[in-house]
Design a protein around this nucleic acid. Sequence first.
DNA 1: CAGCGTTGTGGTATTAAATACAATAAGTAT
DNA 2: ATACTTATTGTATTTAATACCACAACGCTG
Lengths: 234, 234
Amino acid sequence: MVYKIKFDQFFSYSFSMDCLIFGFSNGKIHILLVKRAMEPYGGYWAIPGDLVYPDEDLPNAAERILEELTELKNVALRQGGVFGKPNRHPQGRVITNAYLAMVRMNETNPQPSSWVEELRWVPVDEVEMLAFDHNEILTATYQRLKERFIHEPICFDMLPLKFTLNELQQLYEYAFGICIDKPNFRKRIKNLPLIELKERQENVKHRPATLYSFDWEKYKSLVSEGHFEFNMWL
Amino acid sequence: MVYKIKFDQFFSYSFSMDCLIFGFSNGKIHILLVKRAMEPYGGYWAIPGDLVYPDEDLPNAAERILEELTELKNVALRQGGVFGKPNRHPQGRVITNAYLAMVRMNETNPQPSSWVEELRWVPVDEVEMLAFDHNEILTATYQRLKERFIHEPICFDMLPLKFTLNELQQLYEYAFGICIDKPNFRKRIKNLPLIELKERQENVKHRPATLYSFDWEKYKSLVSEGHFEFNMWL
DNA sequence: CAGCGTTGTGGTATTAAATACAATAAGTAT
DNA sequence: ATACTTATTGTATTTAATACCACAACGCTG
């Protein structure tokens, strides 16, 4: 089957970025959603995203768009999948690229901006109907996020800088829907480059837990020099 | 910073697919390259790829393009990364999406077609200067391929349907640049759903090795029902 | 067909890690 | 002090990874 298409017809697409920002709070992984104040899909909740400019590199576009819509800066965005069904966007052929990031919700204060009317953190398993094919994008991206959880220390990007071992455990338990024996969990992670702080929890109604930080310096040197591999459950 | 851009300017991009076909032969992982008989980059070696049609879904486009250029059909292509530097294509803004697949080289007979002048399997570590940003695309995609090797049984897509355990071992040794103890290797893989065939190698100058197949049926049922996880080296 | 070289296969002893489960210590609230 | 909640340590058992040795099976050569 041979198609005859004019050159111009090939150069008629648009390209967008969708930024999936994940955070952890109250034992649940959340995603940042925005309410669209603009057609198409005005009034719908959506993943923050917009079109890429003609002379803009993709990583820069993702950063710019995220900041324009939510005022978030200095977020380490990573590339995810591509979604390009011909009719996914009512205004034309728009192929979109998911970019994802993990942030500390307690230190992150997104504000609705540009065409965003409202903005909200929603637990990933409570997300309802979204604009465009954003449900599909979320599902696929969250799946990949969880896979990365196993072999990259990215979960520490969503935990507070000072966290308890229980918070770390809860994060993994939520992500993978499992229960872990507490004493054994602590033994497994004793290989990780964690810094045990002198501080403890405050304002809790029980024995305060010791706070820890992830030692990124040590982690990098371990990886670069020796044969250290981050691994949470084979 | 606020840009003012007309609607039309946003719908002026093009989108392409690049198909990275990997195979294994003589102890080396190869990639299928094509020689371009067309501008731009006429005469250069490149990853087979072309523009997506306006009404075409991405997976279909990848299949069509691969077939048009190499006459390969029924290849299980998977999505890889996106590459979209503003000036990566001399004719305009073309964002490209890598699709990758593993094939059995002994059963695969690609033929140059359409604008492809010539076609060649090249070991991944012997690839030289390619068209566009294809070296970058290859490096990034091969890297991801190797990561998948660890936790997905995709290596069996590039081995012959009937393979020896030594071939399997060689593949992993090449990919990760390591040496593995043969007896131990065989012990590790004894958990895998392999079918030990009644057949043996033929026309070899030494004791013929037993041939094996990967049991995809059993693999699927193991994964779906129980807690089986494919894992080659933590 | 004996003996050599090559490759495949089986075994063991050692080490390290994952698991299950019990017990203790350290705080808070009354 | 006492009860109660949560954090932390300990042990015994099982399981898997590793290193290394020995042997078996086959083709080839003389």
